[in-house]
């Protein structure tokens, strides 16, 4: 079943385009990572899906409804970011009680056990928590709500490495027990890549890639060798980036090499490996490694 579908969706903020012509479908119970550079439009996209903001053009459907003004979407989705609005007068356990009243699948016991594990006192207030603890509390809310559509916008901001790992593991375990559609955005693709099935790359206000993470990774190849070797064997191939590493060059190219061609590369002494997911993503969003060097070489 399709949970989110977009046809030519655009969003403007007083005539300035934030997102342009998005067409995409996100299926039920898939964990999708949303990545893009700062200002690419990730947050705008997630807020539109949550029904907080209205699409300027095109057709956006969540659970077959326009999410803006939809009670159905609100009751079946939760949006977690690092600027959650809670009434300042309430203590954390009171906030949890409210979630319990509003969300049908909310698991209070799980929320309380996670609070204990992360040593967040129930009697504290959200604004008195440290930045990392605040994010952790929000993340706990997102997991315990068990909403059919769970949206995390940069959930790990301020968390330390241990808390991040714990968060992704807790999310995954609860997802395995209670599958749901999850959207996760982060600047750091590496920290979340393991739990993702699909990736949605937003670049320059448009969708640059949507599909499985392994397909993206396998769409590129990293070649290492001398400059002459590499230029000789990449005729007709699309080169995404070139980096000098000491005496060797590393080129990332689009992978349309056959097995025979790759064996030939090996024979010529050119190391060829699949790129890391992060490198594939950087290549897509025109952030070639070493690009910053050009600034200084001008």
């Amino acid at each position: 079943m399709t949970v989110i579908s977009m046809k030519h969706v655009s969003k403007n903020y007083s005539r300035i385009a934030a997102l342009t012509d998005l067409t995409v479908k996100i299926e039920e119970n898939v964990i999708t990572g949303i990545v893009g550079r700062n200002g690419a439009g990730k947050t705008t996209l997630l807020k539109m899906i949550a029904g907080f903001q209205k699409a300027t053009k095109g057709e956006l459907r969540v659970f077959d409804e326009n999410p803006f003004r939809s009670l159905l979407v609100s009751a079946n989705s939760i949006y977690i970011d690092d600027a959650m609005s809670y009434p300042g007068s309430m203590k954390l356990h009171e906030l949890l009680d409210e979630f319990n009243r509003f969300y049908a699948n909310w698991n209070e016991e799980l929320a309380v056990r996670l609070m204990e594990y992360f040593s967040i006192p129930l009697n504290s207030r959200h604004r008195f928590l440290s930045k990392g603890k605040r994010s952790t509390f929000n993340a706990i809310v997102g997991i315990a709500a068990r909403c059919p559509l769970t949206i995390f916008d940069e959930p790990t901001t301020g968390m330390d490495t241990a808390a991040r790992n714990d968060f992704y593991r807790a999310l995954l375990k609860d997802y395995i027990a209670f599958p749901r559609t999850i959207l996760l955005s982060s600047h750091y693709i590496d920290e979340m890549k393991d739990v993702l099935e699909d990736l949605l790359v937003i670049h320059r206000k448009r969708i640059r890639y949507h599909g499985s993470i392994s397909d993206l990774q396998e769409a590129h190849l990293s070649l290492r060798g001398s400059s002459e070797q590499l230029s000789g064997s990449t005729l007709g191939k699309i080169i995404v980036s070139k980096t000098t590493r000491g005496l060797q060059e590393e080129w990332i190219v689009e992978n349309d090499f056959s097995d025979a061609e790759r064996a030939e590369l090996n024979r010529q002494g050119i190391t060829n490996t699949t790129v890391s997911l992060n490198d594939a993503y950087l290549a897509l969003t025109e952030q070639p490694r070493g690009g910053i060097d050009d600034v200084f070489n001008a």
């Binding site: 375990k173 393991d194 099935e197 993470i213």
Partner: peptide, 17 residues
């Protein structure tokens, strides 16, 4: 695939693949 997903903290679909 679910055991593998838990074991390595990876997406069950990836384990299935």
């Amino acid at each position: 695939q679910y055991q593998l997903a838990e074991l390595f903290t990876i997406n069950p679909a990836t384990a299935g693949k």
